[in-house]
Amino acid sequence: MNPTRVQWIAFQTIVVKEVRRFMRIWQQTLLPPAITMTLYFIIFGNLIGSRIGEMGGVDYMSYIVPGLIMMSVITNAYGNVSSSFFGNKFQRSVEEMMVAPVYPITILAGYVAGGVARGVAVGIIVTLLSLYFTDLQVHNFGVMAAVVFLSAILFSIGGFINAVFATKFDDIAIVPTFIITPLTYLGGVFYSISLLPDFWQGVSQLNPILYMVNTFRYGVLGVSDIHIGFAFAMLFVFIFILGGYSIWLLRRGTGMRQ
């Protein structure tokens, strides 16, 4: 049998399994971000936003919507892969793939595609909800789609690495709680970094999520605090480095093979 054909079918199998998983437990995967983001729109966008006025040349609600969509995509892509892959490790069902002729790159691609699928699904739900609160413009659809897709890939890979090293369920909650959430909040979701003193503007530019949020905002509003080309270059470099590292971990069987 042709190995390429086997890998293609194995990839589709993992993707179908992953999508089936997050659809089966939609109350835990798709509903909570919809509720949380609706609360953000109501509280920050409507109630507080009406007193803030404009930010970056647009009304506050329009300013925060792109950031909130990106925040949903990033956290859900990461959470999907980290919880699913760790769940498979915990139940040892990961062994089903390890005894099969599935290449490490196929396993990684399958899980990442599952994470991207959930990230994009949640992104679409949040976008549809935002239409109730504001008129969403589209300045550059290509930039919007590309940054969503690449960010979801990058954070899915991050979730995968987290799951490989995790030995208990607490370990897959630590990174989102102590790293991703703070970086997202400080990544210009709710404010423009031009409001910060020079020193903190410099510090903010070390935050990778700032580039994703601002690039997506540029795609929607045509407004950005950073250089778009640099953001894409950074996304590609990180995907390449972390993707390569994940494949190396899978080859070694880290956290899976004795």
């Binding site: 049998m1 086997v6 089903e96 793939m97 002729p101």
Partner: peptide
């Protein structure tokens, strides 16, 4: 391989478990 310990996903259905394994081996 039939291992000593149960190692399938506890939440998946019987038919899905077997069909998914076939997919890992490249079966349509």
């Amino acid at each position: 391989v039939v291992p000593q310990e149960f190692n399938f996903n506890q939440f998946e259905k019987v038919f899905d478990i077997v069909v998914t394994q076939a997919g890992y081996f490249g079966m349509r």
